[in-house]
Design a protein around this nucleic acid. Sequence first.
DNA 1: CCTACCGATCGGTAGG
DNA 2: CCTACCGATCGGTAGG
Lengths: 207, 207
Amino acid sequence: MVGKASRTRYAILQHAADRASMDGLEGLTIGSLASDLQMSKSGLFAHFGSKEDLQLAVVEHAAARFAEEIVAPAQQAPAGGERLRAYCEHYLDHLEHSVFAGGCFWAAAACEFDDRPGAVRDAIADGVRVWLAELERQARLAGLPRPAEVAFEIYSLGLGANACTRLLHDTRAFALTRATIQQLLAARATTINGEPPASRVNLRAGE
Amino acid sequence: MVGKASRTRYAILQHAADRASMDGLEGLTIGSLASDLQMSKSGLFAHFGSKEDLQLAVVEHAAARFAEEIVAPAQQAPAGGERLRAYCEHYLDHLEHSVFAGGCFWAAAACEFDDRPGAVRDAIADGVRVWLAELERQARLAGLPRPAEVAFEIYSLGLGANACTRLLHDTRAFALTRATIQQLLAARATTINGEPPASRVNLRAGE
DNA sequence: CCTACCGATCGGTAGG
DNA sequence: CCTACCGATCGGTAGG
């Protein structure tokens, strides 16, 4: 059974991740979260030992949501190039439908904590590393040359899409990102500068 | 003559931009800035009318520094593809040499304010728009197809390079970014999907 | 989960 | 540019 306390905790984390995607993890305050959720400050605080523990719990929660909404659905697509496209598509959908009110939680968290030492930063960095490693793995399975470059490019385009839509309110950003990713996967799969891809056939598509 | 007050103001803004690149514009506090600069709170505050005015002044200062250190030096290169490469090179140098202690001020500011309405956000968005428009202009002068895509890609790779170095402390990020940009400019300049570039010769190189 | 409270710090002001 | 101060809010605690 899922206890009342854990349901309350989930509701706190969901709301906190939403707020953090807009105002940042440091912008979260125990007082304003409590008033949003109609609890007392100390009632909310009792679920966590400190503000840092709250921030860590929010990062964990956001990782679970990312896995649920972007990584898991893409497992339907065969490994390699098609799964890479599925990741991009689900990521853009996630942005387009504003799963978190402030766009990509990870883009916001990475920028905010990239110069602050501590456990929160380490947790955010781990999440980003896992994502980059998975992109690189699929690029390699797709037989694309320089898979680390492909992973870096796709990751970067995600950051760009998030920035263009959130900051510039540029509605063309989604189409632009889709076109750019199509373009880059096509270009990479083509012989360029005399370096053909290792294989055009996805040998491990069934794994 | 440059008055004492304006020199003090410059010193405040330089230090504030440095701090903001690490802790964000909202993380700036009048008290900590004053103590860093060995002034009284109200002494520092007197240079600005409010915290928001201070943030706006910091954004303006950062725009001037970006123009000085990235845009101006690249004017040495001929317009078009070479200038695009020069922009990338100077941007990466700017990151590599940590002109601001926390890496790219603009990447940090864009993430932080992308969901907060107000004058500060508008100023940041304007700065980003100017940069994207200049990248697109040079891509067009270079005769590259889809200049808006090229601009978006280069902008995104800058965000990626900043994130990889600051958050992941990944020292390969600079080389990876340089390689990726070389790759993308080469791929774009090549006939792909039956669409040749408008012109391989930079007709307006002398402008 | 609550009320009631703590010391510290916030942005900002008065008056010089 | 300074000292001295304001009300509000911060993270966190005591005690229940």
